[in-house]
Amino acid sequence: ALNRGDKVRIKRTESYWYGDVGTVASVEKSGILYPVIVRFDRVNYNGFSGSASGVNTNNFAENELELVQAAA
């Protein structure tokens, strides 16, 4: 299972961040479909780089994520 702070690569092909590595911000335990919230260094097309207006978190299912580096 994934944990907060883990570095993960995104495998959801239609995602803006496909192939990117993000950090797990939190994992919901309530049984929702996309329980893993991942935070990225770059914002998506809703904002400009360096601006706070873009979105830099997204929810994924565990099977859409590949663990790159476990949290220390």
Rank of each mutant, 00 (worst) to 15 (best):
A1M: 10
L2Y: 13
N3A: 12
R4Y: 09
G5R: 03
G5P: 00
G5E: 02
G5A: 03
G5F: 04
D6E: 01
V8A: 00
R9P: 03
I10Q: 01
R12K: 09
R12Q: 06
R12D: 06
T13A: 13
T13E: 13
T13Q: 14
E14W: 08
S15G: 03
S15I: 04
S15L: 08
Y16S: 05
W17S: 01
W17E: 00
Y18N: 03
Y18S: 03
G19K: 04
G19P: 01
V21I: 14
V21F: 04
V21D: 01
V21P: 00
G22T: 02
G22P: 02
T23H: 04
T23R: 04
T23L: 06
V24Y: 00
A25P: 00
A25Y: 10
S26Y: 13
V27Y: 07
V27G: 00
V27K: 03
V27D: 01
V27L: 06
S30W: 09
I32N: 14
I32Y: 09
L33E: 10
L33C: 10
L33I: 08
P35R: 07
P35S: 11
I37C: 14
R39M: 14
D41Y: 06
D41I: 09
D41A: 06
R42N: 12
R42A: 06
N44W: 15
N44T: 04
N44V: 07
Y45V: 15
Y45M: 15
N46M: 09
G47N: 14
S49M: 10
S49I: 14
G50D: 14
S51C: 14
A52V: 12
A52R: 02
S53N: 12
S53I: 13
S53D: 14
G54P: 09
G54M: 06
V55G: 06
V55S: 11
N56G: 04
N56K: 05
N56W: 08
T57I: 12
T57D: 06
N58P: 03
N58M: 15
N59L: 05
F60W: 02
A61K: 08
E62N: 04
N63Q: 09
N63T: 13
E64I: 01
E64K: 00
L67E: 02
L67N: 01
L67Y: 04
A70I: 09
A71K: 10
A71L: 09
A72T: 14
